[in-house]
Nucleic acid binder design. Sequence first.
DNA 1: CGGACACCTTGACCGAGATCAAATGGGCGA
DNA 2: TCGCCCATTTGATCTCGGTCAAGGTGTCCG
Lengths: 251, 251
Amino acid sequence: MGEQMTLPIQIEHSNCGECPIRHRAVCAHCERDELEALEEIKYYRSFEAGQTIIWSGDQMNFVGSVVSGIASLTQTMEDGRTQMVGLLLPSDFVGRPGRETAAYDVIATTDIVMCCFRKKPFEELMARTPHIAHRLLQMTLDELDAAREWMLVLGRKTAREKIASLLSIIARRDATLTRGRSSGPIVFDLPLTREAMADYLGLTLETVSRQMSALKKDGIIQLEGKRHVTIPDMGRLMEEAGDDTDGGFLV
Amino acid sequence: MGEQMTLPIQIEHSNCGECPIRHRAVCAHCERDELEALEEIKYYRSFEAGQTIIWSGDQMNFVGSVVSGIASLTQTMEDGRTQMVGLLLPSDFVGRPGRETAAYDVIATTDIVMCCFRKKPFEELMARTPHIAHRLLQMTLDELDAAREWMLVLGRKTAREKIASLLSIIARRDATLTRGRSSGPIVFDLPLTREAMADYLGLTLETVSRQMSALKKDGIIQLEGKRHVTIPDMGRLMEEAGDDTDGGFLV
DNA sequence: CGGACACCTTGACCGAGATCAAATGGGCGA
DNA sequence: TCGCCCATTTGATCTCGGTCAAGGTGTCCG
């Protein structure tokens, strides 16, 4: 069975035409050609929050990456239980080279703009450019890591640890995107509803809410409104997450 | 961070020298050369049940595949909680092309024989042979699928459903390896202890044992001794697993 | 300004699975 | 064959997180 995957494509946040993201290939000496080839097969799509971008089982005729907004990769059981299996943030890649159909639902969590490439030409480009294939392999390995790290979270962590893990991942990701590694308090807006957090963590939204309140009461996080989060001490949060590895943060 | 992964390499169970597995490359017209090149950098290692084959953080100087036996990819928290994040069965590939160190512990569940290739030459071969890189990408995508499917199991399924899911995965894998798809009862030996099953499923061994007994009492499975399992009706087992997809089994 | 709606919080209670503890059983070496 | 060791089973109890049910809060729009 074919399916959906996310691979963070190596890109830079600088302009290429109307697109705020520059799709950068890996091989230094042929970068120019690749960029031009990508330009030719590129188009844009946008989706509103809540829209299902791709249904599990869909024929896929494009690959692409998220320009802005958040989407989730989700699996659903027939009785309605759902589990988010991946989070698509800006710069993440969508689509499985070589596979025909999607295996997961891709649901827009916020409004989304995607930069798409027609699948066939992209794959041909990939075949012509070994470095792209190699880069895709590396990205897929990263995804696999993230998935396996998440298996530990889902299988063995308590609700409180799960919340702390999610917060630290989002904070880390946010911190590396917006500034370099700094050591002050970290401030960001949660891009997920309580329900989406619950789907990601294998919890109910009530439990998520309770644990958020508890972390707030204990001073691990500060909450302003429902979404605005301040983390005064990243180290303490990671302790709460039960993380031995600091994930390369603040190294 | 680099790490460990499993990718089922495309192989055939026929002899090549002393190795019971034939390492088969993907490109038909250059298969001969690839086989010869693989022969040159090949060697064997064996491990006893319980041995840790690779420690998380180890420098990796080989890639390889399992010839016989079972191993597990495992993550451990500092307080001792462990979660298995992958299962290595015969024909599964070990090692991350392009990564320096292992991210997970690889522990021999049974006695193991591995067929290894020195990493550097293997990667050079990979660079020379685009089809191998492409094949590796496909295998990695399969792994990613398996991991994400498992996230649904870990996050949303009940203990009973988890056990049924694990049994059906093992049964399916066993069935496709040993014979073609047949429709009769399925018989196999569990390659895992109750504790290993628990580590895989995010449960305790007591719960595993209880649910196995329950499934037995309800006639979903038959148990002879501790390990020998008969599944009279695969359909019923998959119902218990809450699986909507039949995973391509008996299609 | 106020009402409606979506999202979130909090409370009370319950149950699946964890934990602690003990009994059973099978395999292997002496 | 006996006895030991270790995996497994089974039992009793506890607890975390799920479930059901009210409220609260913020935002949009009349």
